[in-house]
Amino acid sequence: MKNISIKQLNVFCQIARSGSLSLAAEHLFMSKAAVSLSLTELEKHLGHRVFDRVNQRLHLNHQGYQLLPLADELLQRHAEIELLYAQSAPLAGTLKVGASQTVGSYLLPYLLADFEKERVMDFSTGDEPNYIDKQVQITNHFELCQNILDYKVDVGFTEGVVQHPDLISLPFTHDEMWIIAAKGASKFDEETIDVKALSGQQWLLREEGSGSRDFFIQHIAPSLTAWDTHFQFNSNAAIINGVTAGLGLSCLSHHVITKGNLSPHLQIISLSTSMQRSFSILLHKNKYQSPLLNCFVEFSKRWGIQTANELA
């Protein structure tokens, strides 16, 4: 066990994230043979296989899942030690941020910009803030959760409901969902209608795994006597254009519709039912939280309370 090296742990983590020797080798600027040898040496020292080999892919087994959070923490602490005396500022390194489509497209850019501004202000005495390599992945809610579980991202932002026991969900901010229709849909011209009045309509929904779709299924569909998924899109912009073209109704965040500059050919249907939902910050419960990650999470919680409503 004493012979396990930082290099071997780094190789292990990269393979765990990519599931491929070739992709890990490409990321680490190593040959595939060198990556394979490093993994073999690690498994020899451990006395256990940490991956199952299935159809030329590597999948973490039970031993691998036990090792991953420990290896991730050791690598981050190793990076902190290297930066400890090389740079004067306390925050530096890599921050891997993930977000679902709505948060990632309409809130996260403002959050990151304000985080940068605060860091510059913190060093207004003369010292320059350390460089932070920020990597951002925008996907749907289901894939975001899986990326956090696989240690592919450090922190995530989502509108979906989180149920996995290994994920920590912290409050971020609130959101309001709007029902949109093509302008001139006369049956929806009333000032406020009951959600049941939308029964029998055709709907344009996001793909399975999307928080917006989950909201519709859980909070709107149960009140409808009949409804039909007319089209399924993996893009909010495509849904807005589809509704504008008269393909059906949809349910989207007010951030999406407002920031997308509501078309004059669309109308918002006013409902008597509350259409509120919450955005959350997601973390893996076993992941080591570096000073940089802790700083960003605390800033994000403050930002969500103070700023998000101003972007509506």
Rank of each mutant, 00 (worst) to 15 (best):
H230Q: 14
I268H: 07
E73L: 01
E298T: 14
F296Q: 13
S300A: 15
P90E: 06
V136G: 02
G98E: 00
E298W: 10
A308I: 07
S199G: 07
A33W: 04
G200R: 08
L107Q: 05
K187G: 05
K196S: 12
F296S: 13
Q63E: 15
H164A: 09
L282S: 05
F233N: 10
S212R: 01
G93V: 05
Q202S: 02
D175M: 06
F12E: 12
L170M: 09
V256W: 00
N55G: 09
S212W: 01
A16E: 06
R277W: 05
I257A: 02
H48C: 14
R49V: 14
S263D: 09
K196M: 09
N241H: 12
M275I: 10
P165R: 12
H254N: 10
L149M: 09
F172M: 07
N234E: 15
W203V: 01
H174R: 12
Q163R: 15
L84I: 09
S199W: 07
V120G: 10
S36M: 02
L107E: 03
G260P: 01
F299C: 13
V297R: 13
D122Q: 15
I148Y: 02
D189C: 04
G260H: 00
L170C: 11
F231L: 15
E26D: 15
D214F: 02
Q87E: 03
W178K: 03
V161T: 15
F216E: 01
L204N: 03
S5M: 13
L68Y: 02
K7H: 12
G64K: 04
D127E: 13
F215M: 01
F296L: 14
A185D: 07
A226C: 12
G126R: 06
N241C: 05
H45E: 13
F216Q: 00
D189Q: 02
C145T: 11
A34F: 01
V97M: 06
Q306V: 07
D72T: 00
L46M: 13
S270W: 11
A89Y: 01
A221Y: 04
D175N: 12
V120F: 12
L144C: 04
T173L: 10
S290K: 07
E73V: 03
F157M: 05
S199M: 05
L46E: 09
T307S: 07
R49D: 15
S253P: 07
R206T: 09
S272L: 12
I132T: 04
A71G: 02
H255K: 11
D114K: 08
T139M: 10
T102W: 00
G156L: 07
A25G: 02
L58A: 00
S280F: 04
D228I: 08
F142A: 14
H45R: 05
L311K: 06
F231Y: 13
G64N: 08
S20T: 11
W227C: 03
S263F: 03
L170I: 08
F188D: 01
G200Q: 11
Q163T: 14
S5G: 13
V195G: 00
V153F: 08
A182L: 03
F12G: 08
W227I: 00
A237Y: 12
L111E: 01
N3H: 10
P291F: 14
N236I: 00
L108Y: 01
G184M: 06
S223I: 05
T40F: 15
L84E: 08
T158K: 02
D228Y: 14
L205S: 05
L67H: 03
L39N: 01
D194A: 06
